[in-house]
Amino acid sequence: MDILTITLFLALAVRMGTPLLLACLGEIYAERSGILNLGIEGTMMLGAAMGFIAAYETQNLLVGFIAAALVGSLLGLLHAIIVIFLRGNQTISGLAITFAGIGLSMLIAHEYVGKVVRGSLPIVPLFSDVPMLSAFFNQNIMVYFAYVASIVMWFVLFHTRIGIEIRATGESPIVAESAGVNVERVRLICAILSGTFAGLGGAYISLIDMRSWTDLLTLSKGWIALALVLVSLWNPLLALFTSYLFGALYAFQVFLRIDINLAKMVPYAATIPVLAIASRLSKRVGVPILGKPYIREEEALHGV
C-alpha cells in the first residue's frame, strides 16, 4: 500500500467512524447517569431521515443537522419520560424507540428514496498537504465538532462538579440525592443528550456518508455504537479512539477482496470478542448501575 492509499483508507475510516463517535458520546452520558438507552439505532434512523428531508428541502446541510438534533432530542425526551417519571422498563422502552424510529423513518422518507442531497459543509483545511494527517484534519466542521465534543465531554465528566453529579447519579442515586443532587433532572438531561447526539450521528450518515436516501440507512450502526460505549469503558476520550478503530474496520471492508456479504460480517464479528475483553476490564473501573429505576420511597425502605 502506498501513502495515497493509506490516506484514502484513513479518510474513509473517519467518514465511517464519525457517526459512531457522535452516537457513542451521547450514550456515554446517559449510561453514566444510570439510563440505558437502547433506542439509539432508531433515533439515528429517524435523525437520518428528518435530517435528509430538511436538508433536501432547504438545500442546506446545516439545517439538516439541526433538524436531526431536534428529532433526536425529542426521542431522548420520550425515553426519559417513560423510564424516569413513569418508571417504565428501560430495555422495553429502548427497543420500542428503536422499532418506532425505524418504522417512522421508512414511512416519512418514503418519497425521498433514491433522491440525492446537494450542498456541503464548510471544511477546515488543516494539514491539507500532509499525506496521513490530512485524512484526520482536512475535514468538515461536523468531524471537528465530534473531536471537540469528545474532549469537552471528557473534561466535564471527570474534572467538573457537573461530571461528579452525573457519575454519582449513575453509581448510587440515593447517595447522590442525599448530597443534594436532583437525580431526576440529571437523568433527564443526560437521556435527552443521548438522543441529540444519536440524531446528529444519523444525519452524518445520510448527509455526508451516503448523500442519498435508501431504507434502513444506518444499518446497525446504532447497535455498534452501543457496544462501543462499553468498549470505551464509558470514557469519551477512549470513545474517540475506539470509534475510529471501528470506522477503520468498516473501511477495511471496502479494501477486503472477499465476498461482499462475508466482508459485511467483519464489524459484527469483531464486536463480540472486543466486548468480551471490555467486559473483563470494566469490572475494574466504576460501572454505572443500568436499567434500574430510581424509586425514592422504596430505596429508603430497603437501603442501597
Binding site: 422499532f99 418506532a100 418504522g103 417512522l104 421508512m106
Partner: peptide, 8 residues
C-alpha cells in the same frame, strides 16, 4: 415500515 412502527 408499518410493521416496525406497530411493534414499536
Amino acid at each position: 415500515g408499518s410493521t416496525h412502527l406497530f411493534t414499536g
